[in-house]
């Protein structure tokens, strides 16, 4: 059995262009998400929920514990400070081209036993970023916050 050779241009073979014509999707933030984003927008705080039985604080909050299925309905302010669990320095964009400036992304913990939050780091260089770095959230001014994860502009090193 033989195979066609690799070809470089997709238009070199008979083809048809198409798309899957869904215009867009509408995603609800959910019960816990509504509480989280409204608190972030209006009060500038980061909320979590805690499962005492499993010893886990979910940040962002969830209305159930994924391990024991307990209902979690008490929201706790976990503060704006966290610690970098891991990070990456992104040099290339989705199109494969070099970014103008490397972007640093991180998983941030808010104390032991919390789940991590994915976000960007700022005011830090590829040379100085490290696992275990203490960071704090930099929020947009209240007037510019819309109740989105990007209301947090980035996390920056503390002190």
């Amino acid at each position: 059995m033989t195979f066609s050779e690799k070809f470089q241009k997709t238009t070199d073979v008979k083809h048809w262009l198409g798309d899957m014509e869904v215009d867009h999707f509408l995603y609800t933030a959910g019960i816990a998400g509504e509480a989280f984003f409204v608190a972030l927008r209006d009060k500038g705080v980061i909320l979590g929920t805690r499962c005492e039985l499993c010893g886990i604080t979910y940040v962002p909050p969830r209305i159930y514990c994924e391990h024991c299925f307990a209902e979690l309905n008490e929201y706790t302010d976990v503060g704006l400070r966290g610690r970098v669990r891991s990070f990456t320095i992104a040099r290339l964009g989705k199109d494969g081209n070099e970014l103008k400036k490397p972007e640093i992304f991180a998983v941030i913990d808010f104390g032991s036993g919390t789940t991590g939050l994915l976000h960007k780091l700022g005011e830090v260089t590829p040379e100085t970023v490290k696992v275990g770095l203490d960071v704090e959230a930099v929020l947009k001014p209240k007037s510019q916050r819309g109740g989105h994860i990007t209301d947090i502009e980035y996390f920056r090193p503390v002190g």
Binding site: F87, T88, K94, F105, H119, I149
Partner: peptide
Amino acid sequence: PILDRPLKPNLVWIFAMEMQR
């Protein structure tokens, strides 16, 4: 779609964080 996608995550850098850790 609400927590992660607004940050424009890319599969490669999620793995990069795992590798780093």
